[in-house]
Structures are given as structure tokens and as C-alpha cells.
């Protein structure tokens, strides 16, 4: 049985064989700027519309990932991808160019680990020799869909986050690679009853805490089993809350916890509480954290991508914000 406990999948031999990342100008100027494979210095990424720009990022991330994995798209058995836009247009329009079976996924900003976990399960179950997991977000496409026109003058609160412009892709397979995907904890939808779409950190923190606790419980592990426990985009507000929630449950993560949204921008950049979006967790994990792991800084990390399942229409109808978080354990493969 690969299901351990209630929500955790344990994989036998699944590896991340290659990754690819592409980012926009603000991310390139950030502290992780030199970790990314493709950098666009123009928010339009050389395209005519914001939506096409986001698609360009996803295409770039996939192309670089395949190049790093030294394979062609024809050798991929299944593509799993998702983004933030209505009808997942970035993923669907990117996938139409590929002769590969495609599963479109939506988990808001948790999509990066959702695609990685499902891809790993498909590979482990023998349904695919190689799976490609990709996800993207773009500041301007997200702003116009979820908030206001980009140039509208509104004063945003300190709890607001800044959607990361970028895309990340990971090639998952059975052949031995540098990183092993050993387990995944699939989250439940948790709605803490919060309604402020400009404070998604507070809305998502309970979902992240729930998934992390369930992960420890299912695997009989504790925070000290990990060199790093990292959440996707809880930001300055949510990351403090999740630590407190875990502390209340008896798990002290203060020494080995971080958040991708806090890593991607410099604090003085004017990104409010930090980065968010599908790409936030994807580019930081695939671009930066795996490099750190490869360099020997970590042996085992738990990446928990957090998603606010937000809809502007539901917010206008006074509904609260449901949230979800999926965790994936990535371990370094040493030796030879």
C-alpha cells in the first residue's frame, strides 16, 4: 500500500530528473535572480498580451527542463500543468503544441506541488515512464483577473502579496536523478472563514498547518526530520501564523521553516507582504532550493505549496476564502 495514514502517499523510486524555470523582471532583480534559467527583462516577455507573456514563460520553463533532462517532448508520457487564469488558459494553450497526453490541474497557488505529487504518483504507479509537471503565474494576468486593472490607483494594505511572474517545470521519472520524491501529503480544503482577498496569508495558513500536521502524523515524523519545511506563498503575515498554529499543535518549526514568498523579493522592493502565485513556489523550489540541496545544504525538505481558492465573484457574494495546501518531500540523492 502506498497510502500511509490518511492523506500521505509514499513513493518507491521516483526522481526529479531535471527542472526549468523562467521569470520576469522583478524576480530577476530579486535576491534569487541568478538562480533562474530564463530571465525576461520585459513584463510582456516579447509578446503582445499579458496572457501570451505568461504562456511564453511556461513554454520557456518546459523547453529548458527538457533540455536539462536531455530528452524531447515526445519522450514525455504525460504532461500535468496548471495556472491561475480562468479555464487554465496558460496550461491548455501551452499543451496544445505538444503531442503528449495532458492533465490540466487547478489548485490555485498549490498547483506546483499538486502537479509534482500527481506526476510522481503516475510514475510510481507505472502509468508513465516520465511525467512533466509545469505551472505558471504572471503578475499582470493575475492582477486583471483577481483584482483591478494594473494601472488603477488603489492603496493596497501591507498584507497584500505580489504575484510572481514566472513558470517552473519539473521532469519526473524512474531513472535515478539528483533528487528523489519520497512522499506527498495531499491537502484538504480548509476554510477558516476569512473574507479579505488582500490578506491571503491569513486565509491559507490554516490549510498549510493542517497539511503539515497530517504529514507528520501520517509518517510518524517530526519537524526535526527535515532540514527545511517551506511553504509556497504565505508571505510575512501567513508565515508567522502557520508557525504559531504548528506550535499550538506541539510542532516547533521555528528553526527550519521558511516561505518561498519571503525568499523571492528583496524586502524593500515594494512587494508588500511578499510574493505569491503558482510560480512563487515553483521557481523558488525548482530554481533555488534544489540547487541548495544539490550543493549539500540540505538532505530532506518538505515543500508545502499553499493555494487560496479565491474567486472574485464568490468574494462579491460575501463568501469566505477556501484554501488548500499540498506537501511534497524531496530528498537529495548522494553517492556514486
Amino acid at each position: 500500500m502506498k497510502l500511509v495514514g490518511k492523506q500521505t502517499w509514499v513513493f518507491d523510486d521516483v526522481y526529479i530528473q531535471a527542472t526549468g524555470t523562467a521569470v520576469g523582471p522583478s524576480e530577476a532583480d530579486g535576491p534569487l535572480g541568478n538562480c533562474f534559467d530564463v530571465v525576461h527583462h520585459d513584463l510582456y516577455c516579447g509578446e503582445k498580451t499579458w496572457e501570451r507573456a505568461e504562456r511564453r514563460l511556461m513554454q520557456d520553463a518546459i523547453a529548458v527542463c527538457l533540455q536539462h533532462g536531455n530528452i524531447t517532448i515526445n519522450e514525455v508520457d504525460v504532461l500535468l500543468a496548471g495556472d491561475l487564469l480562468n479555464q487554465n488558459v496558460t496550461a491548455n494553450y501551452t499543451a496544445r503544441a505538444f503531442p503528449v497526453p495532458f492533465l490540466c490541474m487547478f489548485g490555485a497557488c498549490s498547483t506546483s506541488m499538486e502537479t509534482l505529487a500527481v506526476g510522481a504518483a503516475l510514475v510510481d504507479g507505472g502509468f508513465a515512464k516520465r511525467a512533466l509537471a509545469a505551472t505558471s503565474s504572471h503578475n499582470a494576468t493575475a492582477e486583471r483577473q483577481f483584482r483591478y486593472p494594473t494601472e488603477l490607483g488603489v492603496q493596497k494594505p501591507k498584507s497584500a502579496t505580489f504575484t510572481v511572474t514566472g513558470a517552473g517545470a519539473a521532469l519526473i521519472g524512474k531513472e535515478k536523478g539528483r533528487f528523489r520524491v519520497t512522499a506527498a501529503t495531499i491537502g484538504r480544503v480548509i476554510d477558516a472563514g476569512l473574507t479579505n482577498p488582500l490578506d491571503m496569508g491569513s486565509a491559507m495558513a490554516p490549510a498549510a498547518a493542517h497539511t503539515i500536521e497530517q504529514h507528520f502524523y501520517d509518517l510518524r515524523r517530526s519537524p526535526s526530520d527535515y532540514d527545511l519545511i517551506v511553504t509556497g506563498d504565505l508571505s510575512r503575515v501567513g508565515s508567522v501564523i502557520v508557525k504559531e498554529l504548528l506550535m499550538e499543535a506541539g510542532y516547533d518549526v521555528t528553526s527550519n521553516y521558511n516561505d518561498c514568498g519571503l525568499l523571492i523579493y528583496r524586502p524593500e522592493k515594494g512587494a508588500f507582504a511578499g510574493g505569491s502565485g503558482c510560480a512563487c513556489c515553483a521557481v523558488v523550489t525548482y530554481g533555488h532550493l534544489l540547487k541548495e540541496m544539490k550543493a549539500g545544504a540540505m538532505e530532506r525538505m518538505l515543500v508545502v505549496a499553499t493555494g487560496a481558492l479565491l474567486s472574485p465573484t464568490m468574494i462579491q457574494q460575501n463568501e469566505s476564502i477556501p484554501a488548500i495546501a499540498h506537501g511534497v518531500v524531496i530528498e537529495a540523492v548522494r553517492g556514486e
Partner: peptide, 26 residues
């Protein structure tokens, strides 16, 4: 204008300039 509004807040949104900004930005 959006950066000005982030700083000025209601000092920018309560004027007719914000109405112009709302039409232009959309």
C-alpha cells in the same frame, strides 16, 4: 498614477483624477 495612489491613498482616490485614472487604466 498607481504608485502615487499607493502613497497618497484617499488623497488620490477622492479627486476627479482618480475617476480619470479608473477609466484610463481599464
Amino acid at each position: 498614477y498607481d504608485e502615487f495612489s499607493q502613497f497618497a491613498g484617499a488623497g488620490s482616490t477622492m479627486l476627479i483624477t482618480w475617476f480619470a485614472n479608473s477609466l484610463t487604466s481599464a
